[in-house]
């Protein structure tokens, strides 16, 4: 399995609390991005693609799916380790990502521990817009057993 072969490129012992992941930039998120994600994700909530609906709901315009940013931040994780090493991934959506925003995903190692016979690390992850506003904040647990 390719997943197992590549698993060894990051060593649990070499990783330190405070280490950062390479950042990942996505966007600007335009209406086309939102339409693609609507179809690709099966999330058909009109608030993300229908500006009339959004305005009638009290928003200035359509805004991005929170799950789009979660998916982009997921790419940051799977660009760093094999997907099968990821044990949990959870986020809170802390503010709305507006259409035209550029989001940047980042992550930092906050903890190392052993559980269920595995060497694991905890990452704090987040996305921010180009204006520095945090839109999503979360945690991932990754297995780094060689």
């Amino acid at each position: 399995m390719v997943d197992d072969e590549k698993r060894t490129h990051l060593s649990y012992d070499a990783i330190k609390v405070g280490d950062s992941l390479p950042k990942l930039k996505f966007g600007p998120i335009n209406r086309h991005t939102l339409a693609l994600y609507c179809g690709g994700s099966g999330d058909h909530n009109p608030i993300h693609v229908d500006s009339d609906f959004a305005k009638n709901s009290g928003f200035e315009d359509v805004f991005a799916h929170g799950m789009l940013s979660m998916a982009v931040l997921g790419r940051l994780l799977t660009g760093w380790v094999e997907q099968d090493q990821i044990r949990t991934y959870g986020v809170r959506f802390t503010s709305i990502t507006q259409v035209h925003d550029v989001v940047t995903g980042s992550g930092e190692v906050t903890e190392k521990y052993e559980e269920d016979g595995e060497k694991r690390i905890v990452l704090d992850v987040m996305t921010k817009t180009q204006y520095g506003r945090q839109t999503l904040s979360g945690t991932a647990v990754i297995c780094l057993t060689a």
């Binding site: 929170g66 099968d84 991934y89 959870g90 986020v91």
Partner: peptide, 8 residues
């Protein structure tokens, strides 16, 4: 959408 979490 407030939160989403996956256990894999």
């Amino acid at each position: 959408h407030a939160e989403e979490k996956f256990d894999y």
